[in-house]
Write a protein that binds this DNA or RNA. Structure first.
Length: 333
DNA sequence: GGCCCTCTTTAGGGCCTT
C-alpha cells in the first residue's frame, strides 16, 4: 500500500546526542568502554543501524541545555511520566547526552518495521538524515559554517547530532541566529577540519550495509549542500560519493500549487506555521530547524504522496552533480 | 546560486538559504 510507505510513518528521533566538542571523539570512546550501557559505543561503530535495543524500547529526548554565552537552550520534552532509564550528563566542554526511556506511550511505527511489511528493499536500506547548518553569511567562498545538526529519521540510538563550529573568523550575523564569536571560540568548540572525521564516522554508524543515505535540508541544492562541499574541500575532504541529498524546497513549491493549499510562502518558517508545528528552541538554530524540518518532511511526503523510492528516483542528487552543474554554469558564462 | 513564475523561453525578478 503506497500510503503506508510514506514518510509519515517515520517516527522522529527519540534520543539525542549533543556534541559540542572535537575532543568528544576521544572522550566518547572512553565513555563507551565504561559502564554497562554499551549502546553509547554505537555512535562510533561502523555498520550499526536500525533500532538498537529492540523495537519494544522507546527513546526520547530529555530537556537539555548548553552553556553558551549565558544562554540556556532548552530542547523539547516528550513523554512526561516515562521512566528515564539512563542519562549521561552533558557539559559544555565535552557534551554527550543520551536519554533512554522505556515503556513509552508513544505509538510510533519504526521505519524498518513499516517497510518490511511492504517488502521494499530500497526503502529498507535507506537512511534518511535531516540536517541544517548555520553560517556566518550567505557567500560560501568567504563565509563559514558555525553550527551543524543532524537528525536520523528512523530514530534509535544517537539519532541526533549537533555542535557549534569554530570558523576562525568573527561572527558578524549574530542577530540572525544568536551565535556569537565568543560562543564559537569557547574551549572545546571544534574547527571544521576537526569535526569532519567525526561527522563521517557518525554518518557511517547509521548507514546500512549496501544501502544509501539521503541528507535532507530546506534549500539544500542552493545553500546547504554547496556550502558543505566548499567546507569539505577547504579542509581537504570530499563529500562521500554514496551521500545523496534531497531538497524540500521544490516540495514547498508543489504544495503551494495544490488546490486548496493556503501556504503563502515556501520558507521553512511558513511550512512550520502551515502545518502548526510548534517551535522548540530558537528559530535559526541548527537543531531547532532540523526538528522542524523532520516534521515538515513527514507532512510534505504525506500530502504529496511521495514514497522513499519516489524520492530516490526523482528528487535526490549527489555532491558531484552539484559540482558538475556549477562548473557548467561557470563555463557557459 | 538555484528554482519558479511570468509582464517568458534570445529574460528578468523574487524568493530562499545565513
Amino acid at each position: 500500500m503506497r500510503a503506508a510507505m510514506c514518510l509519515s510513518n517515520f517516527h522522529l528521533a527519540r534520543c539525542q546526542v549533543h556534541i559540542a566538542s572535537a575532543s568528544l571523539l576521544k572522550k566518547f570512546n572512553n565513555l563507551s568502554t565504561k559502564g554497562e550501557n554499551n549502546r553509547r559505543f554505537q555512535l562510533l561503530r561502523p555498520n550499526i543501524y536500525g533500532l538498537q535495543g529492540g523495537n519494544n524500547r522507546r527513546w526520547t529526548q530529555k530537556s537539555l541545555s548548553t552553556n553558551t554565552e549565558g544562554k540556556n537552550i532548552t530542547r523539547r520534552k516528550t513523554n512526561i511520566g516515562q521512566r528515564i532509564a539512563d542519562v549521561t550528563s552533558l557539559t559544555n566542554s565535552s557534551s554527550l547526552n543520551i536519554t533512554r526511556v522505556e515503556n513509552s506511550e508513544c505509538k510510533t511505527v519504526p521505519v524498518d518495521q513499516t517497510i518490511s511489511e511492504n517488502d521494499d528493499n530500497i526503502s529498507k536500506l535507506t537512511t534518511i538524515i535531516c540536517f541544517d547548518i548555520e553560517t556566518t553569511g550567505y557567500l560560501r567562498d568567504v563565509e563559514r559554517i558555525i553550527e551543524i545538526a543532524f537528525q536520523v529519521l528512523s530514530g534509535g540510538v544517537n539519532s541526533t547530532f549537533q555542535t557549534l563550529v569554530n570558523p576562525n573568523k568573527i561572527v558578524t550575523n549574530s542577530h540572525v541566529h544568536g551565535i556569537s564569536t565568543y560562543m564559537v571560540r569557547s574551549p572545546g568548540v571544534p574547527r571544521m577540519e576537526e569535526l569532519i572525521p567525526i561527522i563521517l564516522q557518525y554518518v557511517k554508524s547509521h548507514q546500512k550495509p549496501g544501502g544509501r543515505t539521503i541528507f535532507v535540508a530546506h534549500n539544500a541544492k542552493s545553500f546547504d549542500v554547496p556550502f558543505l562541499i566548499k567546507e569539505f574541500k577547504r579542509c581537504g575532504y570530499e563529500i562521500p560519493p554514496e551521500w545523496n541529498f534531497l531538497d524540500t524546497m521544490p516540495f514547498a513549491w508543489k504544495l503551494m500549487k495544490v488546490e486548496g493549499s493556503t501556504l503563502p510562502k515556501r520558507s521553512l518558517q511558513a511550512l512550520r506555521e502551515y502545518y502548526n508545528i510548534p517551535l522548540n528552541g530558537t528559530a535559526h538554530r541548527a537543531m531547532s530547524d532540523v526538528n522542524v524540518l523532520a516534521m515538515v518532511l513527514q507532512k510534505l511526503t504525506h500530502d504529496l504522496k511521495l514514497t522513499i523510492p519516489d524520492l530516490i528516483k526523482d528528487h535526490t542528487f549527489t555532491a558531484s552533480e552539484v559540482i558538475s552543474n556549477s562548473k557548467k554554469k561557470k563555463d557557459s558564462k
